[in-house]
């Protein structure tokens, strides 16, 4: 049996689809990032001058099943707020792509 083709967008809300998610977690502006500062200080020794504002964060990838992109995004944002980030010190940026 051939593999099923991706669900077309006009079926949004009627069947669920898979979405690839990328969450970028970064320290909020104003929160010291000693890791970023250390990387920045090391760069001139390698001959990279003029690099400023280095911030180190993390990237989290997963896929999620949802009715449509808005539903996927809303679930991911809830997940970010409650688990993937600590809102006291971290921000997140979410990318959702239909598979």
């Amino acid at each position: 049996m051939p593999p099923l083709s991706p669900v077309p967008a006009w079926l949004d809300g009627f069947v669920s689809a898979q979405f690839d998610v990328l969450v970028e977690v970064s320290l909020r502006p104003g929160i010291a990032d000693p890791q970023g500062s250390t990387v920045e200080r090391a760069l001139p020794a390698l001959g990279f001058d003029g690099v400023e504002g280095v911030r180190v964060g993390k990237a989290i990838r997963f896929s999620i099943e949802a009715g449509d992109e808005a539903a996927a995004r809303s679930q991911v944002e809830d997940l970010c707020h409650r688990f993937l980030t600590n809102p006291v010190i971290e921000d997140s940026r979410v990318e959702v792509t239909r598979r």
Partner: peptide
């Protein structure tokens, strides 16, 4: 306790890394 919200604030990496 801070992650659980039983105490306010957060603990981040030491400033000297």
């Amino acid at each position: 306790l801070t992650e659980a919200g039983l105490l306010p604030g957060a603990l981040q990496k030491n400033s000297g890394l």
